[in-house]
Amino acid sequence: MNDMNVPVYVKVNDYREVAAAIDSIKNRLSEARQALGRLKELKEQEDSELQSWEATVADAESKVDEIEGALAQQ
């Protein structure tokens, strides 16, 4: 019999503790995924608001320029 084909096993002590820790890690990663999803939503809202504010600021700048031009003509 070839020794290479013999399955070798490793004993894992306190299997239940390891399984509980893995379960806890799964729960934490699930919470992290949910938090990341919510952060992504907020970030998308922020990006949308930033674009809107950018346009508003540009509009205000052009109006200020107009006022400045009108005053300069006086």
């Binding site: 070798v8 490793v10 004993k11 894992v12 002590n13 239940r16």
Partner: peptide
């Protein structure tokens, strides 16, 4: 009944250790 230990194949154990290392590296990166 309380089970003190289980036996895992060496190949599976190596995969498990590699996965744990990967998760640890990912968490460090995060």
């Amino acid at each position: 009944p309380r089970q003190k230990g289980v036996f895992i194949k060496v190949d599976s154990f190596r995969t498990l250790i590699a996965d744990l290392d990967g998760i640890r590296a990912d968490l460090r990166e995060y």
